[in-house]
Each structure stands twice: as C-alpha cells, then as structure tokens.
C-alpha cells in the first residue's frame, strides 16, 4: 500500500526522519533507515536541515526508494528559485518519489553558511500551489508539461506558536493550496496540543504530532530559549536532570507523549536528531 493509500485508509500513521550527513559517507544513514524498516510508514529526508550544507534530500530519497523504503522528500524554498524547485520536483517523480513535504525553510543566517544568498522565491504555500500545478500538467509559467507528476503533499505547522492565530491562518492557506497531511513541530505539552487540534479539526486533514527525543536537560533548556513555539515543561526537564540513564529516560518520555497524543491525532512523526537508533525502542515502548 502506498503512503497516500495508507493516509486515505485512516490507519494511524508513523513517520520518522533521517538527516543527510555533511560529507559523502552515508552508510550510517542507510543503517539507521534499515532499523526503521517495517516500523514506520514513511521516512522524511530533511533538506539541508538547520540551513547547514550537506548531501541533498533528493539523492537520499532516491537511495531509500531503491532499497524499498517509502521516502518523503522534504523541499525548502531557501536555496532554490522557482525553476530549480520545479525541476527537482519533476526529477523526484521521475525517480519514483511520490511524497513531498513543502516547507519555507530556515533562514541561511541560522546555519553554517550565514553569508549565503537567501532565495525564498516561493514560500511553503506557493510551493504547494506549484506542485499542484505541475500535477495539472503545467509549470508556473503556464507552459505545458510532457508527462505530469503525481505527489502526496504534506506541510508543517507549529501548534505551540505564539501568537497562534497567524500560524493558523497560514495553516489554512496550506490546506487550501492542497496539503494532504500535516507534520507538526515538537510537542511536549498535551494541553496546548488539545487546544490546537480543537481549532483545526474543521479542516479534516490528517495531523501527525511531532516527537523530538530529549537528549538532556540542557537540550530542553536550549530549545525553550531558542526554538520558536517549543516549550519543554519543567517536570520533563527535571526527569532528564535526575535520571541516571538519559537514554532510557528519553525513550520513556517520548513513549509517554506518544500515548497521550495518539488519541488526539492521526499519526506521529518522530524526529530523533542524531538518536536515530533509538526510534525502534521508542516505538516498542509506545506499543506501536
């Protein structure tokens, strides 16, 4: 069953992600992906995550596809103008990649090449529109295509954003533009997530709650200070501080969050941020 069909079937969806390395050695990434085989419905491949120069998402998606995984091609608008974005989308389809996650992307000044020219010719909303247009057989300049792609298109939202309203309006624009599923930023506060779900359930789009593995109390504090709309509550920070086994505690917290969030949404998206090998353990602990 394709990812799109699974989405339609109403099955509870599990996705995770792999981040391409800086450099040409990708055997660790392929090993990590192997551990996810049979455990997840699709694997996101990040696109120069954190605005850091790395191996590209498209090539890694292709390798995953060759090995029988179901990749989700993450595409940001940071580094490519509308020609390059459309071209990469056509290329992806030619390679058999059927799922795309459309994002605006972090600004380059946050990454390791802060001198780079920020592109942002399109944004997440217009990128989704561009994908839908390619599917209709035309490019953004209204030129007809010889053969058209077909994608399952996702987008992201940050349920913890302050203020939430402008992000909700943007969310609505993404749905109107044609997003078929939504993966969220990391969620640590179930009550805030309940409020978010309450406000978006009218759109009837599957939402996968984001789970980021906490590696330490320090990481939690760092995110609270620096990551927009992510707040790790004190009790979780305390648990990470007091534990003797950070890894076991992190897995326990992630599994607990998944159990709390599962009845509220249609899937979960696990972002291991380097702790890729722990994803199967999290799924075990969560009973998935």
């Amino acid at each position: 069953m394709s990812f799109k069909e699974k989405l339609k079937s109403g099955k509870f969806i599990i996705t995770s992600e792999v981040g391409p390395p800086k450099g040409t050695d990708i055997h660790v990434l392929l090993e990590d992906a192997e551990l996810l085989r049979g455990r997840v419905d699709a694997i996101n491949v990040t696109d120069l995550q954190s605005s850091v120069m790395r191996v590209g998402s498209l090539v890694v998606c292709h390798l995953l596809k060759q090995k029988g995984h179901e990749p989700i091609f993450q595409v940001t608008c940071r580094d490519r103008n509308r020609l390059a974005l459309q071209s990469d989308l056509l290329s992806a389809y030619v390679l058999g990649i059927e799922n795309v996650l459309a994002l605006t992307g972090d600004h380059p000044v946050l990454g390791d090449h802060p001198q780079a020219k920020p592109v942002f010719d399109l944004d997440s909303v217009s990128l989704i529109q561009a994908i839908r247009k390619l599917e209709a057989g035309y490019d953004l300049a209204d030129k007809e295509l010889q053969g058209k792609p077909k994608f399952c298109v996702g987008a992201v939202v940050n349920p913890g954003a302050e203020p939430l309203e402008p992000q909700l309006i943007k969310f609505e624009q993404k749905i109107r533009a044609g997003a078929e599923f939504i993966q969220t930023q990391a969620v640590y506060e179930t009550d805030k997530f309940v409020n978010f779900i309450e406000q978006v359930k009218q759109f009837k789009v599957p939402i996968f709650a984001g789970i980021v593995l906490l590696k330490s109390a320090g990481m939690a504090r760092f995110m609270n200070k620096n990551v927009a709309g992510v707040y790790v509550p004190d009790n979780l920070i305390k648990e990470m501080e007091q534990t003797k086994d950070k890894s076991a505690q992190s897995i326990e917290i992630a599994a607990r969050l998944i159990k709390e969030l599962k009845p509220l949404c249609q899937g979960i998206h696990i972002m291991p941020i380097g702790w890729d090998k722990k994803v199967p353990l999290v799924l075990d602990a969560a009973g998935l």
């Binding site: 994002l103 217009s126 402008p166 943007k170």
Partner: peptide, 11 residues
C-alpha cells in the same frame, strides 16, 4: 525571507 505568504515557523 521576503515572504508573500507569511509568517514562517520561525516567528
């Protein structure tokens, strides 16, 4: 980011 449809998630 000179976005036409904002804000982005970094706001």
């Amino acid at each position: 980011k000179s976005m036409l449809n904002g804000p982005c998630g970094g706001s």
